[in-house]
Design a protein around this nucleic acid. Structure first.
Lengths: 233, 233
DNA sequence: TAGTGGTCTAGACCACGGT
DNA sequence: CCGTGGTCTAGACCACTAG
């Protein structure tokens, strides 16, 4: 069944095995999968290892556990939570997800007589399929970032470029959160069946000298939770 | 340090303790927190328990782990807002506006077998006319706040009551922001001509012992900006 | 009462990063 | 080399659900 002492961790082998059984329909929606103890016996492994595998499946949204009842197949959408404004790419890596970024628009424009580099990206995660989570529009002053339009941001973190190629460090973010009705573009990219209210975040990013280094505009996929943790003074 | 054999699981106690240390700045952004083995020794608990606590913090995005190096604080702190979660009344007084609060509902109910005081208020400002800005729904545990239903909150700050009559101080809020479509009640109170997407904030308020003192639910008048100021590290 | 998942312990060995 | 997190074992007791 499982390759012990193999290169692939047991819990990962079990996780993939269960995932396959769920996706092929062997374990059907809202049905019980074998209990933890049964899986222990079946594969002759420890319960901690089984729990590790199942925990990952719960995390990725394929399984729901109910205390005293069992673990159920649960093919629903994953709710990621994103509350770190600038660190989308870092956030996803931390969650061991593969970030993807598709450049929708990339050109220089003028705003109030000043030249800006406009970058529009659909960003999300890749598994078997690509799932877009946000649509980001950035306006970056070419006075502060000369030749920034020369980079290809489909495979490059914007913020890392700020830091590493320009030695400019984002420090403060001011944003406004608004609800808007989805447009055709987000409905297509977010695979929304109908128009629905979504979150739009508008704001500016400043460095420690209060220099505005970026204007941003983010549309959130409704399946993404916008979470915040704050201190009360 | 930790209450063994208490009602609260050890890993949860540790999780809250670490969360607190991160939010108060004891462990700073991008700094190492104590290693798993150190935490074992410090609190005299098993490593599995420590790992369970840390796993949850990684999951909620407060910690990033690096194999062979350690676990790092990973926080984008949200500092302030016009919105001011706990101090609506205080905020408005500072701005020389007259706060108004209309109690829409005020009664005790049961949730999961526990008794809560449910308070629904429309809140806003008074000038020549009254303008409502939010509709707040609070659930307050009567175990923590005995007889809280005896107060009249149309002329009284909920948070001042927490502090002055119960000596309980709100410290941390965890919220999720969602866009929803307005219902008849908000359209009437917010004087909205038609149905429109509005912001709904759902969350919990904790004191410095990570005791959940209030569950909240706030609907925002679309004319109110939901602004945030955050520091990026 | 039997079976489930939830929590916890006390070990063990490994892979990785920095010294 | 040592300390870190990653994986794994073999137990234990508890809280919850259901028959």
């Amino acid at each position: 069944m499982l390759h012990k002492n193999g290169a692939i961790p047991l819990y990962l082998q079990l996780e993939n095995l269960l995932k396959e059984s769920i996706l092929t329909g062997e374990y059907k929606q809202n049905e019980l999968i074998p209990s933890e103890t049964e899986l222990c016996k079946k594969f002759d492994i420890n319960r901690g290892t089984v729990r590790n595998a199942i925990a990952n499946l719960v995390d990725s949204g394929l399984i729901r556990k109910e205390h005293g009842r069992g673990s159920f197949v649960c093919l629903r959408e994953v709710n990621s939570s994103i509350w770190n404004f600038g660190g989308f790419t870092d956030y996803l890596r931390k969650k061991n997800k593969i970030p993807v970024s598709r450049v929708l628009e990339s050109k220089c424009i003028y705003l109030d007589g000043k030249k800006y580099f406009k970058l529009v990206r659909a960003r999300g995660v890749k598994d078997d399929t690509i799932e877009f989570l946000t649509i980001d529009t950035s306006f970056i002053s070419t006075r502060i970032f000369p030749n920034i339009d020369a980079f290809d941001f489909s495979n490059r973190s914007l913020y890392r470029t700020f830091r590493e190629d320009y030695q400019i460090y984002p420090k403060i973010v001011e944003i406004t959160v608004k609800p808007v009705i989805s447009n055709a573009q987000c409905e297509k990219l977010f695979q929304m069946p109908t128009a629905a209210p979504i979150l739009k975040v508008t704001g500016s990013v400043f460095n420690d000298s209060s220099l505005e280094i970026e204007k941003v505009d983010i549309l959130y996929n409704p399946k993404v939770d916008f979470k915040l943790l704050a201190k009360v003074e």
